[in-house]
Structures are given as structure tokens and as C-alpha cells.
Amino acid sequence: MKLQKATRCALFAVLELASDPQRQLSATEIADKYSLSSNHLAKVLRDLGRAGLVESVRGAGGGYRFSGNAKRATLFDVIKIFEDIDADCLINPEPGDDTDIGQALCMAMQEIDSIARGTLMSITIQTLLKSIHWNRERLPQAETETP
């Protein structure tokens, strides 16, 4: 599964900010940490703001902070803002989808989509952040970056 650039930007920003909800970070600080385009990230942060996942803080030391519910918001909630996840061969049929082979391929793709959707809808922001600590405990020798 390959996510679009905007989606990856959004996930990095949401997870970085949610790792410390009291902290405010500028788009540039987040962009520098994850080697992202700060212009692109600024646009993504505006979309995340409209979705209620982050909020901008004005004034000195201002920036962005996480404003969602980390126990409830899932990876799916972030991804659906930027990806057309409902696009499938039933809703948006493409040439060939109405043939026997097209329909059989469609069923295979729907099976993959169903598992992907179930996975993304069940991983909350908090659980993903916790998994970083579990990975560190399980692989203490691995060099992992603090979010």
C-alpha cells in the first residue's frame, strides 16, 4: 500500500504533535524533522485543522498542536482526508470492470481493501504511539527516533 505524499505528511504531523499534545510546533520544525516540504506541510496542516485534528496557535511561540482525541482518532481518520478510499470498482467502475475477469479482479481488490480498511480503522493515534515504545522494548538494540 503506497500512500500519497500529502497523506504521509499528515500522518507524520498528527503523530508528532499527538506525542506531546501540550507542545506547539511550527510547520518548519515538523518538516525539518521528517524531511518534508514545509510549503506542502503547511497546506496539509490547514486541511488537518479543518478536520479538527490540529489547531494553530497564534503569537510568540505559536505553531500547531494536536487537538483531536488520540484514544478515538484512527489512522483511517487521517488518511481519508487525503485519499479517495471509497474508490472501488463498484462505485467508480473503470473500463473492463463489467467483464467476467474484471469482476473477479474486483472481488480480489475488495478483499484487500476490506482488510486494509479494518486495520486502519482499528489503529488509534494513541495505539500507534504506544507501539513505538513496544518496539523499543522488544528491540532495545534498534536505533529508533523519538517522535
Binding site: G118, S122, I123
Partner: peptide, 11 residues
């Protein structure tokens, strides 16, 4: 998703 989220939250 409710139960799956719970089990995932347990690792």
C-alpha cells in the same frame, strides 16, 4: 473496529 481497537491497544 471497537474490539479490534481494544486488542490493538493491548499490543
Amino acid at each position: 473496529h471497537l474490539n479490534m481497537s481494544f486488542f490493538r491497544s493491548q499490543g
